[in-house]
Nucleic acid binder design. Structure first.
Length: 883
RNA sequence: GGAGGAUUAGCUCAGCGGGAGAGCGCUUGCCUUACAAGCAAGAUGUCACAAGUUCAAUCCUUGUAUCCUCCA
């Protein structure tokens, strides 16, 4: 064979882009036609508003690892990519653009506005796709979907109409969360609460009969014009006598009554609260219980409407509040003002204060859907990793409220409802109707509102596969296997997907739900635009490469824990990739003139058997880590196998044979090295996709592309406990001598004679004899003698104790005997403590009788080991004293 | 108010009832014919606190403290 030359430095820029293009060209990302069981994943669709952040990088890295792993297991594997139209968010982006041009969306009109939004969508979509490609995501671009493309829009209509037909969608006038800035209703969970300082105003409401007044406490005096009652707790004895009396609403000439309702907190303020059904959710419920009118005070833009006295009309709430307070004060109604922090809802998109707003909206009735979704969990059809998220899921499902799905936006799926302008008939239809079924009028008008974004994303796992049609994709790849998502959208998305899937297809959309943590900065803060503490995945890739990014994230992503990182964190992955590159570079230099030969097991040395055993163990650990979505464990296994076992020990050990062996030995050695290297590339590919592919292609023993190569499997037969334990003795011996040398600061070039005393004729001594020259290399010794009979003269040698052997290092000069004796005494002390623990355990009859027999056996051998070490150390001190 | 999480080395964090771990950082020595982005050796711990269960607790249970997140 000819040597293969690798660039001197690992530079991912040399090949990452090229390899991705190559994979795409060869259609490696599509599902194979194998008849094994399918494996499918749908990508949580990023919003087309922005670019991908570190959270996406984490999420997609983990998906890519899972997908590549299963692809290599030979299963027909499909990873569906796509993007979400992100209603409010995208509309806001476009509106901000318009604002810069001095325009409002109304100036453009609906059609033009939507057209323009499509352009923004296209632009961002292209950026997102490029980013995913740069990350190396092996998703099947032929299956790419967008929540507003034709098929998915049809799915949305199907879902809406079906739910309507099943009586699960209704329209009604309700108090909803309303963002005046976005001009639309929001779902309950689209509101973010924040504790802000405010004021509590105590206001006098006089009795209508002039017999005095009562005092109510409110944080929002400007809503008093919508008051329809004052409520007290029925058990509040202070007020029993006044219940039913009429009050005169200050600043107006309206009269309201005092009622009782148990929701009133006796301790809050005066224990009397004003009831404003149109502007507070609790009051709304209370108003419904008492059949009270709801007086809406707001225009859609958040200003006060004609239901307030003229002087306040057109004002924003905060503005009006000041004036109302002033007027109350002037009128002698204001008793006092106190500071009062309270939770205020904000729009999750623009952070404007959300107003409870009475309006006509569409709702999904959630109870029946939630029951099915809960049943799916109870049946074990869905499993969360980590499990604790199941509490969150169950709690949300059990306390679910109806979902407001209409949005007063232009960007989104228009609600498939039409109204006959002539007879008023409401038509809910899958197809655009031509005429009214009742009066045959053609004068139909579609509902102006669009649907909540999540109304399309909750169909994602099956709408992307062709539903409502019974497509072959749907047949084959649904239900999907694994969903990877951050915990912040369990409610928004994950729970609803399960409900939709159960409702429309009668099955859970996926079984395994992998909840990742959030990516935070090094101070633990959430990465955000406003803080400017975000890290751009593309910058990471430019600096360290996509492999380094993926591997680092994987290594740090312990089950569901938040990941704290900064730019430097990615050096971890980068250095590992560099190590792989250099090890390969070295190995490929050494194949010059060699031939690959059959690797027959009976020709393997213990060291050879050991590295195969370690490889096999690593494959086993990775399989179980992957099965349980313990990504960090898989990454650590790979790291320590390749770096510590393979590079630090095996390659180092092989150097001697490569230099001094016979041709036959050299050929065998090179063949084993290439074999392990080739297998390692396959083992590591899901985690470091680009570099393994680049290297794999250059290996003399590669077949095809690593992306679709077979994943190495653990096999119990390949476990080699004998080799494992023999090599660990060798390693311990090497470490002991190295440590002794380091302690004494003996320069590496000073080669010293070493005697290893193993007073036993067993596999260990035989192995040590066989590998004496290798030991000499590891110890930088001039020679290593294995003394099985205790006959070697070790006078003047520095002793060290291992498990089952002693090492004697012949150091005449440069040794500080006192320091060495001190070290040994410390050693004795340490071991005596350990021994004491062991003895205590073993003399405890309860331990002997209760503990597992293995544990007892282990304790016994530990005890013997400590005793031996203490004994040896004592002898060694004597020996040193005799110098 | 309810739920969940965290508390382990200087930092970031793994840890699966039985002699405390990794990466980074630090100290020391080495440019050993792949890698100084490297090699080798080392130092650093009341496993938050208190009780309990157990032959045995960093690990299980219950409290306490501090911090974080979500829900209301």
């Amino acid at each position: 064979m000819k040597a293969v030359e690798l660039a001197r430095n690992y530079d991912p820029k040399d090949f990452e882009e090229r390899i991705y293009a190559e994979w795409k060209r060869k259609k490696e990302f599509g599902p194979s036609s194998s008849d094994k069981e399918h494996f499918s994943v749908v990508m949580p669709p990023p919003n087309v508003t922005g670019i991908l952040h570190m959270g996406h990088a984490l999420n997609n890295s983990l998906q890519d690892i899972i997908v590549r792993y299963h692809r290599m297991l030979g299963r027909p594997t499909l990873w569906v990519p796509g993007t979400d139209h992100a209603g409010i968010a995208t509309q806001n982006v476009v509106e901000r653009q318009l604002q810069k041009e001095g325009l409002r969306r109304q100036d453009l009109g609906r059609e033009k506005f939507v057209e323009r939004t499509w352009q923004v969508k296209e632009k961002h979509h292209d950026i997102i796709k490029k980013q995913l490609e740069k990350m190396g995501c092996s998703c099947d671009w032929d299956h790419e979907r967008f929540t507003m493309d034709e098929g998915l829009s049809r799915a949305v209509r199907e879902a809406f109409v079906t739910l309507y037909e099943r009586g699960l969608i209704y329209k009604g006038k309700y108090l909803v969360n309303y963002c005046p800035k976005c001009g639309t209703a929001l779902a309950d969970d689209e509101v973010e609460y924040e504790n802000v300082p405010g004021k509590l105003y105590d206001v006098r409401y006089p009795y209508a009969d002039g017999s005095g007044f009562i005092t109510v406490a409110t944080t929002r005096p400007e809503t008093m014009f919508g008051d329809v009652a004052v409520a007290v707790n029925p058990e509040d004895e202070r007020y029993t006598s006044v219940v039913g009396k009429e009050l005169l609403l200050p600043l107006t000439d309206r009269k309201i009554k005092i009622i009782t309702d148990s929701f009133v907190d006796k301790e809050f303020g005066t224990g009397m609260v004003k009831i404003t059904p149109a502007h507070d959710p609790n009051d709304w419920e209370c108003g419904r219980r008492h059949n009270l009118e709801a007086i809406n005070l707001l225009n859609p833009d958040g200003t006060l409407n004609e239901n307030v006295p003229e002087k306040y009309r057109g004002m924003k709430a905060e503005e009006a509040r000041k004036l109302v307070v002033e007027d109350l004060e002037k009128g002698g109604y204001l008793v006092k003002t106190t500071d009062h922090a309270h939770d205020v809802g904000h729009c999750y998109r623009c952070h404007t204060t959300v107003e409870p707003y009475l309006s006509e909206q569409w709702f999904v009735s959630m109870k029946t859907l939630a029951d099915k979704a809960l049943a799916a969990w109870r049946n074990g059809d869905i499993v969360f990793y980590p499990r604790r998220w199941e509490n969150t899921y169950v709690h949300w499902m059990e306390t679910i409220r109806d979902w407001c799905i209409s949005r007063q936006l232009w960007w989104g799926h228009r609600i498939p409802v039409w109204y006959c302008q002539d007879c008023g008939k409401m038509i809910v239809s899958r197809e655009n109707p031509d005429e009214c079924p009742d009066c045959h009028s053609h004068n139909l008008k579609q509902d102006e509102d669009v649907l909540d974004t999540w109304f399309s994303s909750w169909l994602w796992p099956f709408s992307t596969l062709g539903w409502p049609d019974k497509t072959p994709d749907l047949e084959k790849f649904f239900p999907t296997n694994t969903l990877v998502s951050a915990y912040d959208i369990i409610f928004f998305w994950i729970s609803r997907m399960i409900m939709a899937s159960e409702e429309f297809l009668g099955k859970a959309p996926f079984r395994d739900i992998v909840i990742t943590g959030l990516v935070r900065d090094i101070q633990g803060r959430k990465m955000s635009k406003s803080l400017g503490n975000g890290i751009d995945p593309i910058e990471v890739i430019d600096k360290y490469g996509a492999d380094a990014m993926k591997f680092t994230l994987c290594y740090l992503a312990a089950q569901g824990q938040d990941v704290m990182i900064d730019m430097d964190s990615f050096r971890l992955g980068s250095r590992f990739a560099n190590k792989i590159w250099n090890a390969t570079r070295y190995l490929l230099m050494n194949i010059e003139g060699r031939n690959l030969v059959d690797i027959q097991r009976d020709k393997l040395s213990i060291m050879d058997r050991w590295i195969y055993s370690r490889f096999n163990a690593a494959a086993g650990e990775i399989a179980s880590a992957m099965e349980n979505y313990r990504f960090n464990e898989a990454a650590q296994t790979i790291y320590s196998f390749f770096w510590n076992d393979f590079c630090d020990w095996y390659i180092e050990a092989s150097k001697g044979r490569l230099l001094h062996g016979s041709d036959e030995e050299k050929d065998l050695q090179v063949s084993i090295l290439m074999d392990i290297l080739e297998k390692s590339m396959r083992l590591m590919h899901p985690f470091l996709s680009f570099i393994t592919e680049e290297i794999y292609q250059k290996l003399p023993n590669h077949k095809g592309d690593v992306i679709c190569a077979e994943y190495p499997q653990f096999s119990a037969e390949l476990e080699d406990k004998e080799a494992d334990s023999l090599v660990s003795i060798l390693q311990e011996a090497a470490r002991l001598v190295r440590a002794a040398r380091a302690n004494l600061q003996i320069a590496p070039e000073k080669k010293l004679r070493v005697v290893i005393r193993i007073v036993a004729d067993n596999a260990a001594s035989a192995f040590m004899k066989e590998e004496a020259s290798l030991l000499a290399t590891f110890m930088s010794a001039s020679s290593v003698t294995i003394d099985t009979e205790g006959k070697e003269d070790v006078k003047g040698a520095l002793p060290a104790t291992g498990i089952g052997f002693e090492a004697f290092i012949f150091v005449r000069e440069a040794i500080d005997i006192d320091a060495e004796i001190k070290r040994l005494q410390n050693e004795i002390e340490k071991n005596e403590k350990l021994l004491e623990g062991s003895v205590k355990k073993l003399s405890n009859e309860n331990f002997i009788s209760h503990a597992k027999p293995e544990a007892v056996e282990k304790e016994k051998s530990k005890k013997a080991e400590f005793e031996d070490k203490i004994q040896k150390s004592k002898e060694h001190i004597e020996l040193l004293k005799s110098f």
